[in-house]
Every structure is written in structure tokens, then in C-alpha cells.
Design a protein around this nucleic acid. Structure first.
Lengths: 212, 212
DNA sequence: AAAATAGTGTTGCAATTGCAACAATTTTAC
DNA sequence: GTAAAATTGTTGCAATTGCAACACTATTTT
């Protein structure tokens, strides 16, 4: 399994502080369910989640909510990664969060001034972005499955691979999982029951076991 | 509308040749429908499409094909952006193609050796990756729509925005569009007819006009 | 120019899915 | 520790979707 790439990989504590200072970073705290507003007027701001979890979500005009991406410690988000006219997208804290904001343009500038740390941070940024691309790809692959059954089975397979075991714990609530798979919750529950009846999976209290 | 970021942005012809040579790049030609094999044994290979178009596609075990991403000139692809165990994914030329391969690790190495061009190329790489993230995000947003009708309308809106007009040409065949939206083609055709009957869109020979 | 291949347009029918609505349970907040 | 809020589990029913099959047209290939 691919290791989770970290934005501060290979940079010592002191150097992290130094470069964050050089880049004139800001660190802010957010409470659970709070919307993480950023890039107000600015451009190319990168938010680094230092502590806690947050989701990138979309609210439909009819109030329907869709989780686009879930993020945790060492994950990043940025207006750079979002379409300019996607105003209905927002980052929402799902636990209390600590977020550091840096300006990408400053980081690039530092790379041309013999700063030794900046290129490492830039490389790490690319690694984290690669990982993000992979995650979004996985999501796309999930969503292209044509039935709820296929989506569930594929999701379980992915989780199984991640856990490197046929048994793993669901860290989503069923409500959230339905959102993630973009299907009706009750229809998903019905299909989940079918999968259990067909002895393809076991589900003991959110602990899933793949039986095939 | 966001400009398409180019991997060679702000680098002169001569410098492009120079850096490609330094990075020991390889350029290969592919014919339409040919599979673009890369990273055989290697890691962190970046493919740059110099000419032509290619798709990132998945073949299901039952032969069903799904377009994950369509790519054109100046687009890039890489094993870095793909899950390690996604062996069923492949890049396939959809026209005759010219592709240059570079090694990411070499590029990083060059950045620490006072090479003036390498950091620019690296910045461009980030810009292109950002764009790719946005594209995949758009795709996710499309796929999370719950009905064929919604998917079509949303797709048309996106294309309208891109063209900056209510009228634009479909550059997909309907067969491919169905693949892209991940729905049954005949069901999509039916829904397309409904949209026309409801006077929400006009469709004259692949020239779509949004009527609302 | 003919043949082969790929794409378009349509339909009936069966299966899947979403919606609405509800009770029961669990978790969170004060 | 109780009230409020969120989640789970279930069902009937209607709407949407996928499948299969077909005729027809357009585009390549040789």
C-alpha cells in the first residue's frame, strides 16, 4: 500500500517553522461543522490541515449535500485545485481543526533564492497532489460503476486493499457512505441487505468482511 | 475562463530541447487506438503529449469500457497519478500521437543543481496537475448527479461555460458521451430526446444550444 | 466503389433505483 | 442525565434506467 505522503516529509521541526515564517503563513483554528473560508480575494492559497478532519463538499441548489473529498491531517486544499466558478463548493471542518495557510507564489519565489527547504516543500507538494489525483481517480472509478451493488462491492474491495485484509471497519456512517457513492441511502441499505443475504459480505456492526 | 496551462509555458524552444536532453527524455510515436505503454518496471515517469489525443480508460472484466479522462496536446499522464494496483487502467491513443517521457526524479535532481530551467518546468508541472485536479473534480461533480437528465444538463452547462456561449459543438460522439457520463447510451438518447421535447435544449447535428 | 466498421435513433420490457414515510436506536449537546 | 438531533433499518410504490434488439446512416478501410 502506498504510504500517505506528507507535506512536511523530510523537513525538520526547526526548518518547518523557519520556512512557514519565511512564507508568512497564517494558522487558524476552526470548530466542528465550521466552514473554512480562505482565499478571500487572494489567489493560490494552500491550506494545510495540521490537526483534525475536513470535507470538501458541494451543496446542491435543492440543499442536497455531496461529499467531494474527505481530508485529514497533512492533507491540503487550495483554490488552485478548484474551478474558478465552483462557488457552491466549500471546505467544512468535520472535527475541530487547525489549518495553516501559505501562498504558493511565495513558495515558488523562495525556490529561486537558494532557499534549501523550499524545493523539498515543493517536491512534497507534488507528492501530495499526486496522491490527491489518485484519490480522485479512485472516486471516479467508484462513481462510474453502474449499480449500487457494484459500487458497494468496489468500495469494499478498495477498503480491503487499504487495510490489507478481508476485514475492516467502515469509518463512514451509512448516511455518509451513501453520499460518497452518490446513491439514495435507503436503496443502499436495501442493497447492503441483499449482499448480506447473498453471503458476499458480512457486516457486524460496521465491521465488514468480504466473503469471496 | 481559465487558460489551459502548458507544461512548457515560459520556456523557450532552445531551453526546452536543452532540458529534455538533460533529463534524458525519450519521444515515441503512437498510432490511433494504440495503447501507450509506459513505466515498464520504472517509476515516476511523466508522459507529455506533444501531438494528438489520448484517453485514460478502464476496461471492465466484462469488456465494458469507461473513459476516465480525455487528454490532448500539452496534457500529461504518469504512473505517479495512478493507484499502484490499477492494472486495468490504460492510456490509449485516440489519434496518432507523439509522446515525450521524462523521469520526475531527474527533474527534481536538476532543481537542486542551479539549473535555471528545471524550477520553471516544475512550477508548470504543478500548474498542469492543478488543472488535472480541477478536471477530475468536474468529472466527479458530473458523476454525482443522480439522473441522466441532471448529468446531461450539467455537462451542457459546463461546456457552455467553456465556450462562453449558450451554443457549442459536442466534440464527443454520443457513444463516448454516454461512456463519459457512465450511463447507458440508449437511455441517454431517450433522455436527450426528452430534453429536446421539453424545449430545454436544441440539438442540431451535434450543435447544442441551451434554451433556458 | 464496395465492404466493413462505427455511430445514431428508437422501442418494449424488466430490473433497479429513488422517494416518502415511518419506527427504532444511537449519539451528541446542554 | 435528559432532551434533541442524527443515524439506522425497513417498506410500498412510482419513476428511471439498463438491456436487448433492431433498422438506418455515416465514416473508414481496402
Amino acid at each position: 500500500m502506498l504510504e500517505k505522503q506528507k507535506i512536511y516529509e523530510n523537513i525538520g521541526e526547526k526548518d518547518i517553522k523557519k520556512i512557514l515564517h519565511t512564507l508568512q503563513s497564517t494558522t487558524l483554528l476552526y470548530k466542528n461543522n465550521q466552514s473554512i473560508a480562505y482565499s478571500i480575494g487572494n489567489r493560490n492559497i494552500i491550506g494545510i490541515i495540521e490537526e483534525g478532519n475536513a470535507n470538501l463538499i458541494r451543496f446542491d441548489f435543492d440543499g442536497k449535500r455531496t461529499i467531494i473529498e474527505e481530508m485529514s491531517k497533512d492533507d491540503i486544499f487550495s483554490d488552485m485545485f478548484l474551478s474558478t466558478d465552483s462557488s457552491e463548493l466549500s471546505v467544512v471542518a468535520t472535527t475541530n481543526c487547525k489549518v495553516t495557510f501559505i501562498e504558493y507564489n511565495e513558495l515558488i519565489k523562495e525556490c529561486t533564492t537558494n532557499n534549501k527547504i523550499a524545493p523539498i516543500l515543493l517536491n512534497n507538494l507534488i507528492q501530495v497532489m499526486s496522491r490527491k489525483l489518485i484519490k480522485r481517480n479512485e472516486r471516479i472509478e467508484l462513481l462510474t460503476r453502474r449499480s449500487i451493488r457494484d459500487k458497494l462491492l468496489h468500495y469494499f474491495e478498495l477498503e480491503g486493499k487499504k487495510a490489507n485484509s478481508k476485514t475492516f471497519n467502515l469509518n463512514y456512517s451509512y448516511t455518509d457512505l451513501a453520499d460518497y457513492l452518490s446513491v439514495d441511502r435507503s436503496a443502499m441499505m436495501r442493497e447492503l441487505k441483499n449482499l448480506k443475504d447473498d453471503k458476499l459480505i458480512q457486516d457486524i456492526n460496521k465491521k465488514i468482511t468480504i466473503l469471496y
